[in-house]
Design a binder for these strands. Structure first.
Lengths: 142, 142
DNA sequence: ACCTAGATGAGAACGATTCTAAAGTACGAC
DNA sequence: GTCGTACTTTAGAATCGTTCTCATCTAGGT
């Protein structure tokens, strides 16, 4: 019950109401090893919450990301993914199978802002590296 | 007629059939100052091609990007944008108004690939910097 | 126990994109 | 120049991810 307590506590600390659905969704993300989509969450919780609506999942992950408990990552094609790792980090995306890996930059980027964007106030940035993951490289019919 | 010749020539060189629609779409992108969406292209060419279908625009931009004549950029929310600038470059996105600016890195990124992704073959990468553009900063009710 | 702001659920609605199938056309071969 | 065929276009349906609506429900303070 330790892990379950954590989800409840995190919600409370964030000032969010604790509902069974939220608790389950946050707990799912805490336990999930990877980057879950809304559909991953929704289908995985079907057993426990047969009547939960997709809207609830969308609402919840949106709120969780607003309070900084999860991070939304929208890379490549298809659905957004949600990451319990909220430290600034970046992603490798496999262009063959869509697999996603975290990575960190050895040093922050240095950018030269063009004249038209003079005064642009940087909030954060994200690097999306595209390529072929090791597994797909093996299966390659090169 | 110089510009028009260019589009035709580019298509031929790329090994694509030259149709009036393709020529117009490529020409539109060559002339367009910025990052056009499919809808920008579609609505702008309504006058000249009243019966052109959105599918044609999608098909065409997909082919143009396959042969490297344009680059698809999918940043932030909403529709993909298409860029005639195919040099490697990156983007500033305004989180308020969605405005998009090109920028270049002063030096390439250095990344440390995590163990799970050992052997990942990098094809290319794209940096998306989020923040507030100068125009929105002025209008801010801070 | 009660009230009420906020959360949930079902399904409709939406925007971007892809698919389908039928009709049309570019362009190489003759 | 004409012909044939593989490729294109078109219109609209279909799909996918996401948001919206609104009636019902509930968490949590009083």
């Amino acid at each position: 019950m330790q892990a379950q307590k954590d989800a409840v506590q995190l919600l409370k600390n964030a000032g969010l109401r604790v509902t069974p659905q939220r608790e389950a969704i946050l707990q799912f993300l805490l336990d999930y090893d990877g980057h879950a989509t809304v559909d991953d969450i929704y289908t995985s919780l079907q057993d426990r919450f047969p009547s939960m609506s997709v809207s609830t999942v969308y609402n919840t992950v949106k709120q969780l990301s607003q309070v900084g408990l999860v991070k939304e990552i929208g890379v490549g094609e298809g659905a957004s993914r949600f990451d319990i790792n909220v430290e600034p980090h970046h992603h490798l995306v496999c262009t063959r199978c869509g697999a996603l890996f975290d990575f960190y930059l050895e040093e922050p980027i240095r950018l030269s802002v063009p004249p038209e964007a003079e005064g642009f106030e940087v909030e954060d940035y994200h690097v999306e590296v595209r390529g072929v993951c090791p597994r797909c490289k093996k299966q390659q019919v090169s």
